[in-house]
Design a protein around this nucleic acid. Structure first.
Lengths: 233, 233
DNA sequence: CAAATAGTGTCTTTGAGACACTATCGT
DNA sequence: ACGATAGTGTCTCAAAGACACTATTTG
């Protein structure tokens, strides 16, 4: 890793003399998106023991010279091809038996991305094949790998909370969007209907009107908006 | 750790054949209390390289057969003698160079405890010697070990936020307390003065009146209250 | 003009904030 | 009685919630 001084060496000898075995550290990533008015998460089917055939969150081991965030970026890139997407740390899971093979401590991260971005980058293989409805994944009868159901449940709650007081919902939107579209996303994330007028009052400082509108629909056109980058929650 | 099946063995050989070196995992604990109307945190002076002489958060390495929470309990017990105190996970710090000696990923936890509890258990050695004012620790000119100033700053923000919508403030209180006393704690945690009448309206569902009062003071006595265990935030 | 969705005006309810008042102790 | 702190009543104001109305498109 780096050059070693004398004092350091003492410590390292003392510590590394493997009186202890070290746990492994992985990052598990929950890549959320909204497809067909449904909140979905990227999952992969396990091909090996344990939980063979079960769905699991994508994860990677953290390299010795790699930060947690770099590991997340690597994982996201491998899974989706995307490079610059929003993510945040969720929670660190450290029960001893969470993986039956060996001791693995998992630092979980939530990523959020629009379905448009996700589709644009997934060249070979349809990304939709890896998208699973979150509410399905949370059903008790659905056996997921490891403690991943618990992790998804935790993330689902965090999303519900943060949508209320932050602007994370915008991560699910394309650059230009309509307010009815944005409202629908809020409703999906919060899992409850909202009043149009109240919703618009609340999010008005977060958005900027453009001069474009929808067209072709058999009803009044809807203005396109972009996110107001000035806005701070 | 456990008996190993054939399939597992393959995985373990593959993974453990130390193509990779593993990071170490530690938990760092922020033990908060309020002493003399000041928010304080338990810190220890480092006796060795690196950051020799600097203050550091107490931490322990996570054992291979020890959950993160068990490691926290062990750390808290060593540092304070206390066993059943409130704590919650804060954040996991994984920058590669955060410790110059070696790669250490630190899972930080916040613990909160009343000064009365802290004093009761600390038999040998005065616990006050390890209590440092949080606001002092956050001053730019104060050099703390590793990224511990950043961790404290993060925790300080989290406390400010959570005090508003949870009941964490009660962890700093003894079993019986007065409302003026509780208000003072809220004011310290939020770092701003509160209106008496409004404060009482807000916390009234969280507390239960007892039939005891303060006495001996040259002013109207104050009722003692206990926490309402029914209350859910 | 009918159906459908976009968009606005406004009344009600709720809770935070501010402040003034009353209550009860010791001296 | 007075100083000091405990405890309460109530007005104001801003935000959330509920609902009714108007606006603009296509067929």
């Amino acid at each position: 890793m780096k050059k070693t001084t004398l004092e350091e060496k003492e410590f390292l000898q003392q510590y590394d003399s493997s009186a202890f075995e070290k746990p492994s550290v992985a990052v598990d990533v929950l890549i959320f998106t909204i497809e067909n008015d449904t909140l979905k998460v990227v999952m992969v089917e396990r091909k090996e023991f344990p939980y063979k055939g079960c769905l699991a969150l994508p994860g990677v081991f953290v390299g010795i010279d790699e930060s947690l965030e770099d590991a997340v970026k690597r994982g996201v890139k491998v899974e989706t091809g995307l490079t610059d997407i929003y993510f945040e740390q969720l929670y660190t899971w450290g029960e001893v038996k969470r993986d039956p093979r060996m001791r693995i401590i998992s630092v979980s991260y939530m990523a959020m991305v629009s379905i448009e971005q996700l589709r644009a980058k997934s060249k070979n293989g349809n990304i939709s094949d890896y998208l699973y409805p979150v509410e399905e994944m949370l059903k008790a009868e659905n056996e997921l790998a490891f403690d991943h159901q618990q992790i998804i449940a935790y993330a689902r709650e965090r999303i519900k909370n943060k949508v209320e007081y932050s602007d994370i919902a915008f991560n699910f939107m394309p650059a230009k969007f309509t307010l009815p579209g944005l409202q629908k996303v809020y409703e999906i994330l919060l899992d409850k209907p909202l009043y149009k007028a109240n919703f618009r009052k609340k999010i008005s400082p977060m958005v900027l009107e453009t001069d474009e509108s929808t067209s072709g629909d058999a009803h009044r056109p809807s203005k396109y908006y972009v996110k107001n980058q000035e806005y701070r929650p």
